[in-house]
Design a protein around this nucleic acid. Structure first.
Length: 268
DNA sequence: ATGGTCGGTGTCCGA
């Protein structure tokens, strides 16, 4: 393996958008694609479509109707598994190990509902507990030279220029100080490097999600960066590029998220 | 301006 190309994408129903995903795979040729919100159980996941397209290695943590994550790959897995969080088996984390002992953790963090107060909103309480539990786990398994990648719809836009208006979103779930703090704890739990911001200056606005509730998503450009790719320090020097594939948001019948993609050099 | 639009366990719920 000389180069590893890995993308993450909240697809908002893998069955409805299977042709869209295949088009993306053919166009961008990632070795590994991590999907979130597949909205499918394991038994109805479209395995054959991915196998026939050339991505035969698939790990799924499915769930009926909501959530669900899947990692599809051209490279075989040397190990894989599903982890459950907060006492629920709700399809929010699947992990795989690639040749060269590179672990890829694919997450769908709870969105958290509308009210950013854990005392009155159980969904927000769940989101904070989820981030806290994952942080504690990464702190436990942390090893200085571990080659790990964490990706997914983390449902937090941590930096001022990860949202269209920092001031107007301070009380909007995804950008509140309490979530941004929780994400900071998570990021420090394994000294994660934010791959996109490794290449894009913090002063530059960059988004991966634009609401469906906008007549003109591109013109209004009221986006947020909710989708992330993080790598451990051992992989930092291997980072070659990170891109947001914004044009995909403009395709027909799009997901409200677009893919985020990184290229790593010689990760094995 | 507190609406708006999606998808699926579809005529409500979660995003």
């Amino acid at each position: 393996m000389t180069e590893l190309k890995l993308a993450t994408w909240n697809i908002n129903s893998v069955r409805l958008r299977i042709e869209t995903v295949l088009t993306y795979l053919r166009e961008h040729q990632p070795d590994v694609l991590c999907l979130q919100e597949i909205k499918a159980t394991d038994d109805v996941f479209p395995y054959d479509a991915f196998r026939e397209a050339g991505w035969p290695h698939i790990a799924v943590a499915g769930f009926k109707g909501y959530n669900g994550v899947a990692t599809i790959s051209r490279l075989p897995f040397t190990d894989s598994g599903v982890k459950h969080w907060c006492g629920r088996e709700d399809g929010r984390h699947v992990w795989v190990e690639l040749p060269g002992k590179v672990e890829v953790h694919n997450f769908y963090v709870p969105a958290g509902g509308d009210e950013p107060d854990p005392a009155v909103n159980p969904k927000f309480e769940h989101k904070l507990a989820f981030l806290s539990d994952v942080s504690a786990w990464f702190s436990e398994i942390k090893r200085p030279r571990a080659k790990r990648i964490m990706v997914g719809d983390l449902n937090v836009a941590p930096l001022e220029n990860d949202v269209w208006s920092h001031k107007q979103l301070l009380k909007v779930v995804s950008h509140t100080p309490i979530e941004v703090d929780a994400m900071g704890v998570l990021q420090r739990s394994h000294d994660w490097v934010d791959a996109l911001r490794y290449f894009v200056p913090e002063a530059e606005k960059v988004y991966s999600w634009w609401s469906y509730r906008s007549k003109d998503w591109e013109g209004a450009d009221k986006g947020r960066r909710l989708d992330h790719v993080w790598v451990t320090p051992a992989l930092k020097s291997a980072l070659k590029s990170a891109e947001i594939h914004k044009h995909v948001r403009g395709w027909e019948k799009p997901s409200d998220h677009c893919p985020v993609c990184i290229t790593l050099e010689h990760p094995a």
